[in-house]
Protein backbone atom coordinates (compact mmCIF):
# COMPACT_ATOMS: atom_id res chain seq x y z
CA UNK A 1 0.00 0.00 0.00
CA UNK A 2 1.11 3.51 -0.84
CA UNK A 3 0.18 6.91 0.46
CA UNK A 4 -0.24 9.39 -2.39
CA UNK A 5 -1.88 12.78 -2.59
CA UNK A 6 -4.91 12.87 -4.86
CA UNK A 7 -6.15 16.39 -5.53
CA UNK A 8 -4.38 17.50 -2.40
CA UNK A 9 -5.76 14.80 -0.08
CA UNK A 10 -3.59 12.06 1.39
CA UNK A 11 -4.91 8.74 0.12
CA UNK A 12 -3.84 5.18 0.92
CA UNK A 13 -4.06 3.04 -2.20
CA UNK A 14 -3.17 -0.37 -3.55
CA UNK A 15 -2.98 1.04 -7.07
CA UNK A 16 0.38 0.46 -8.70
CA UNK A 17 -0.21 2.72 -11.68
CA UNK A 18 -1.98 5.98 -12.41
CA UNK A 19 -4.52 4.10 -14.53
CA UNK A 20 -5.38 1.81 -11.61
CA UNK A 21 -5.73 4.80 -9.30
CA UNK A 22 -8.14 6.52 -11.67
CA UNK A 23 -10.18 3.30 -11.93
CA UNK A 24 -10.20 2.79 -8.15
CA UNK A 25 -11.76 6.20 -7.71
CA UNK A 26 -14.46 5.25 -10.17
CA UNK A 27 -13.58 8.00 -12.60
CA UNK A 28 -14.51 7.40 -16.23
CA UNK A 29 -11.29 6.90 -18.18
CA UNK A 30 -12.09 9.53 -20.80
CA UNK A 31 -13.89 11.95 -18.46
CA UNK A 32 -10.83 13.03 -16.51
CA UNK A 33 -7.33 14.26 -17.24
CA UNK A 34 -4.33 13.69 -15.02
CA UNK A 35 -1.08 15.20 -13.87
CA UNK A 36 1.64 13.66 -11.72
CA UNK A 37 3.91 15.83 -9.61
CA UNK A 38 3.03 18.88 -11.66
CA UNK A 39 3.42 17.35 -15.13
CA UNK A 40 0.62 16.32 -17.46
CA UNK A 41 0.21 12.58 -17.98
CA UNK A 42 -1.71 11.79 -21.18
CA UNK A 43 -4.51 9.23 -20.99
CA UNK A 44 -2.49 6.71 -22.97
CA UNK A 45 0.46 6.94 -20.60
CA UNK A 46 -1.42 6.31 -17.34
CA UNK A 47 -1.04 2.53 -17.57
CA UNK A 48 2.73 2.80 -17.77
CA UNK A 49 2.97 5.46 -15.07
CA UNK A 50 3.91 3.72 -11.81
CA UNK A 51 3.11 5.40 -8.52
CA UNK A 52 5.54 5.87 -5.66
CA UNK A 53 4.93 7.11 -2.12
CA UNK A 54 4.08 10.81 -1.70
CA UNK A 55 3.29 11.24 -5.40
CA UNK A 56 1.06 14.21 -6.02
CA UNK A 57 -1.71 13.31 -8.43
CA UNK A 58 -4.17 15.74 -9.98
CA UNK A 59 -7.37 14.36 -11.49
CA UNK A 60 -9.49 17.00 -13.20
CA UNK A 61 -12.65 17.23 -15.27
CA UNK A 62 -14.48 19.87 -17.35
CA UNK A 63 -15.94 22.74 -15.37
CA UNK A 64 -17.45 26.20 -15.78
CA UNK A 65 -14.92 28.92 -16.56
CA UNK A 66 -14.63 32.59 -17.39
Amino acid sequence: MLTVFVNGEATVTSAATLAELVAQFGFPETGVATALNGDFVPRGAREATRLVGDDKVEIVSPRQGG
Binding site: N7, G8, F25, G26, F27, P28, G31, V32, A33, E58, I59, V60, S61, P62, R63, Q64, G65, G66
Partner: peptide, 11 residues
Protein backbone atom coordinates in the same frame (compact mmCIF):
# COMPACT_ATOMS: atom_id res chain seq x y z
CA UNK B 1 -14.57 26.68 -19.81
CA UNK B 2 -12.06 25.36 -17.31
CA UNK B 3 -10.81 22.20 -15.64
CA UNK B 4 -11.10 21.61 -11.91
CA UNK B 5 -10.33 18.81 -9.50
CA UNK B 6 -12.89 16.03 -9.84
CA UNK B 7 -14.48 14.46 -6.83
CA UNK B 8 -15.30 10.74 -6.89
CA UNK B 9 -18.59 11.52 -5.20
CA UNK B 10 -19.72 14.42 -7.35
CA UNK B 11 -18.44 13.33 -10.77
Amino acid sequence: VSVRRESARAN
